[in-house]
Amino acid sequence: MTPEPVVAAPRARRRLRWHTGLSLVVVAVAVWVAWRHWPTLERGAVRLAVADQGWLLVGASATVATWMCSALAQQGAVPQSLPTGRLVATQFAASAANHVLPAGLGAGAVNLRFLMRCGLPVTRSATALAVKATAGGVGRGALIAVLAPVCPGLLRLPHIPRVAVAVVLGVAALVAAVPFTPLGARCRRVLAAVAADIRAVHARPQRAAALWGGSLAFVALHALVLIAVTRAVELPLPPERVALLYLAASSAAALLPTPGGLGSLDAALIFALTLGGAPGALAASAVLGYRLLTVWLPLIPGLVTLGVLVRRKAL
């Protein structure tokens, strides 16, 4: 029984080093791009300093509401009732931790520890996180599907090389063969347990509504933050286009495991907004404002909250 953790620890350290190395590369590229385009970023920062404070307040309010919606979705992912105050505080702390560790590892670790402290086994806690993440991805796809016809021609499907198609088909064939191996029996047992937890959640309409409503609202509110900042800096793009560009850019940036999308999301958002017709300085201003409201202002209070929760053994 004891050798398994000993073997797992080096693997976990290797994965963490790989993620950290890739994150540093992405951040280095982002710094280089920022240096090359510093005059545009400087003009954007100046424009943000004289932006409409009312719209910035709307964006700040939407940011606070995202933590409430994240807590709602997390509660919807488990049949048991969770302590409301600690749940909301955990989501606030998790958002800060997510900007320190790459690829969502920070938020996942904080929420996993919280659910275990609430009495859920490790497997059920991990299942709850997977259910919540899946609901968030489905909600993001649903919003893109709704907004894409409203903004025709804004999004274009990329050309997919034949080699990539062949690789995907090969991986699919390997996955299809797994159930017929000894590993497949173990996977079936795990999937059966996951399916049982999902059925238990959806057997209670209130939990299902919290899961899907909270996940959808979380994504929509992040889009609203960016929309509010674009209104504040008078960026000449309609709100539905800004929302669709945000959803597309954030989905693309999620493929790069940087802490909180640092560098990757910023570059993707600026590129998307300029591609959508916004001037470069205004696009930089909007992204700086969005990151200020969602990352930099809540970061220190979030880390302090994380420390308090750990000290009180809530995590």
Rank of each mutant, 00 (worst) to 15 (best):
M1W: 14
T2F: 12
P5V: 15
R17T: 05
R17Y: 07
V33W: 02
W35R: 14
V46M: 10
V46Y: 10
A49N: 14
A51N: 11
Q53W: 14
T63V: 12
A65W: 11
A73E: 11
G76Y: 06
T84K: 10
T84D: 09
R86W: 12
Q91D: 06
A94I: 00
A97K: 02
N98R: 01
A103C: 00
A103I: 01
A107L: 02
N111E: 06
R113I: 00
C118P: 06
C118H: 12
R124N: 10
K132H: 09
K132T: 06
A135D: 04
A142N: 07
A145Y: 05
A148S: 07
P149F: 04
L154I: 12
V165W: 05
V168F: 13
L174R: 05
A177G: 04
T181N: 08
L183V: 11
L183H: 10
L183R: 12
G184K: 06
R186L: 12
V190A: 15
L191Q: 02
A192L: 15
A195K: 07
A195S: 07
D197V: 14
D197G: 07
L221A: 05
P239Y: 10
L244K: 01
A249W: 13
A253F: 15
A253K: 11
A267Y: 05
L273S: 04
L275E: 14
A281F: 06
A283R: 06
A284T: 04
L293H: 00
W296T: 13
I300M: 08
L303T: 06
K313R: 15
L315I: 09
